[in-house]
């Protein structure tokens, strides 16, 4: 019983990390580099959206990702009863 709760907690953690890392890769390698030609039609301050993602957008997204992760993991910790006393 104890063991399976631990496994469920770990699976929830890994799933969360997986989703967040997909976004992480999408904004930096995706929007910032690989898909920049596709985004070239969207103008931002004299250049295009891809340039904005490469120089600002990805950094801002990274911050949001980490804070969301910290908040969600604390919830999961409590839900599975593995939080720190």
């Amino acid at each position: 019983m104890e063991e399976s709760a631990g496994e469920a907690y770990w699976r929830a953690n890994v799933n969360l990390v997986r989703v967040l890392l997909v976004i992480w890769a999408l904004v930096s390698f995706g929007c910032g580099i690989l898909f920049r030609p596709l985004l070239s039609g969207i103008p931002v301050g004299g250049t295009d959206l891809g340039f904005w993602f490469a120089q600002q957008g990805s950094i801002i997204t990274f911050i949001v990702l980490i804070f969301f992760y910290a908040w969600r993991m604390n919830q999961l910790d409590r839900h599975f009863g593995v939080d720190e006393e």
């Binding site: 967040l20 930096s28 910032g32 490469a54 990805s58 990274f62 980490i66």
Partner: peptide, 21 residues
Amino acid sequence: GYDNSSFLMGWTGGYVLLAML
């Protein structure tokens, strides 16, 4: 210019890995 954006994304994106992994 743009081509060196790697430094901006690379030196900040590492913190996402650090925080989650």
